Simulated scan of single mutants.
Amino acid sequence: MQRAIYNSLVKSVPRAAVSLRAAPRSSVLAFQPFTGVRFNSTKAEPEVKATEKEAAAETGANENASEATEAAEEKSQETILQEKLAEKDKALAEMKNHYAQAIADFRNLQQITTQEVKKAKDFALQKFAKDLLESLDNFTLALGSVQEETLKANEEVKNLFDGVSMTRNVLEKTLERHGIEKIDPMGEQFDPNQHEATFEVPQADKEPGTVFHVQQLGYTLNKRVLRPAKVGLVKDVEN
């Protein structure tokens, strides 16, 4: 049985070869046995070109994507730098404001310190001056207690009176040089800021509120009342 199959195959080989030699090239290629590779050149060339186009397109897309990424990164860095610059400008403006405020505060402090020093200097003698005013009051009382007739009749009393009067005048001038001035409101209108009313007397020939008697002289220290003057006022007759 095997021998018969082998003989039939041998007889058929020359005929198959003849038929292959006589057949066209295209049909031969079409009927070649499959070996894993296609030899159809008409279809392979377009496929290669399409592959090359796809690769070129993919390369261009990759390049465009890379450029877009670089541009985005550059833009991002520029935005970050702009934000940092804005923060620096804001910090600089705040620093300038603090500096200007510090200068203003320092100048105000200088002015306040200067004023305080001036006040301390102007009124440093306030307590001492008040003590001296009592001595002036005593001199005034002593001189006011001497009668004019006594001065004319007694030369020694007159000399003593003149000496006490000169001492009082020297003391008053010394106080004036240090800003202490006398308040003598005789005949003036009552001023509650400088005068202290101790009594009132009605007088028809004088305007109500007029000082007609000075019980105690007042004094100011650098234009500030050190002691008000004690006075007697004219009272309204109808009241």
Rank of each mutant, 00 (worst) to 15 (best):
E172N: 02
A71P: 07
E181Q: 13
A68K: 14
N239P: 09
M1H: 08
K53Y: 04
K152N: 00
I5W: 04
N138F: 05
A104L: 07
G232P: 01
R3F: 05
S41W: 11
E176R: 05
P33I: 15
A153Q: 06
A86G: 04
K235F: 01
K230C: 00
G36C: 02
L9E: 08
K53G: 03
E149M: 06
K53S: 04
L141M: 12
K182A: 02
A72K: 08
L143S: 04
Q32E: 10
I112N: 12
E54W: 09
K53P: 06
D89I: 14
E73Q: 13
A129L: 01
E74A: 11
Q2Y: 05
R38Q: 15
L9Q: 13
K96Q: 15
L233M: 04
E176V: 00
E74K: 14
K90H: 09
K43N: 15
N7L: 12
E58K: 10
Q203F: 08
L233G: 07
L160S: 12
L9R: 07
F190G: 07
T69I: 06
D184Q: 13
I80C: 11
K152C: 02
N239L: 05
L20K: 11
L81G: 04
G179A: 06
A65Y: 06
Q216A: 03
V18I: 13
